[in-house]
Design a protein around this nucleic acid. Sequence first.
DNA 1: GTCTATACTATGATAGAC
DNA 2: GTCTATCATAGTATAGAC
Lengths: 196, 196
Amino acid sequence: MMSMTAEAVENARVEGMSRPPTAREKILDAYAALLRSDGERAATMDATAALAGVSKGGLLYHFPSKDALAEAVIERLLDAAQQDSERMEAAPEGAARYYVRTSTVEETEFDSFYQAVVRLAAGAHAPAVAALDQVHGDWERLVREDVADPHAAEAIMLIGEGLYYHSTMPGTWSRSLVGSDIGALLEQVDRLKEGH
Amino acid sequence: MMSMTAEAVENARVEGMSRPPTAREKILDAYAALLRSDGERAATMDATAALAGVSKGGLLYHFPSKDALAEAVIERLLDAAQQDSERMEAAPEGAARYYVRTSTVEETEFDSFYQAVVRLAAGAHAPAVAALDQVHGDWERLVREDVADPHAAEAIMLIGEGLYYHSTMPGTWSRSLVGSDIGALLEQVDRLKEGH
DNA sequence: GTCTATACTATGATAGAC
DNA sequence: GTCTATCATAGTATAGAC
């Protein structure tokens, strides 16, 4: 049986067809998971290889340097972000509500890689910072289109950022807020948006 | 001339008397500055000693391990946070406004050490996580006392978190929001607080 | 495509001179 | 109280076997 070309694999991924994860994907997921749970310091190539279940050499075949790992994580985020922006723009509830509602942690691929890139950006990794700038710029643009008052739009943006900040932070404090009633929070968003 | 006891030095600091910074303080400030600007990975003992202008051995006299450095940063944060909570509770404008207004980056010692501890917490440093939990718990308590509607209080808390998230993140995106009109944002806070 | 073995460098920490 | 060695370990990366 012929193996799939890299392009065919990528298409399969985009189209959501399930298949056994490749070693490359296992490595990338492991690296992102370590960044999220333990930070940049703990996300070493050694730990990544161990978590992915491959040897260091195996990892280095797919990602010849640590920076290559970071670039791949960023690329995955930007792919997922584009799809998210499209959903946000088309959301019947409006971009503002969509944005805040989806800013609580869900165990989506998007959240997983967003949080990983936030950790990279916290280490002043320039491409990670640039990627976050781009993602946030898209969000801000869509929320501003949805909310007439720019100051209300800013407040709503900040509520979403606050939720994400919680989601990327360990500790019990973050749980209490994130676990709280999202419906009630969306009502606050409506209040700001309606600007009465 | 007799040198001051450690206690006398601490009293002088609390009372705000100016004096030449001790080597210990220079080291602590340097470590916090590195955490803020470049993250946990870059905040090595080597880099800290170089930035503080002392040798590695000199640093290790004051802080015998890296964890001792982290503990000292956390202690400084908790000291500053207690003073901040007292000001917040006594603020004529109310805790909610005070909280949001002071969540934008000012170059205060409090902000400096808050951001440093956020970076430590992002690396899953347990005492750092616990310290942030405590600080945020105080803030939340005071804002809830100030804002009748608990859901409005939550939205206001999140706005403040969002501002801090911006402040601790490098990149141009963060500048545009943080630099925006704080007065207009406080009006949004009033709208939420009044709950009409 | 994945592995082992190995080299090089950075990091955290110790010992002891001044 | 601050310095200069010095060391053990961990992290990044290379070379080459399978």
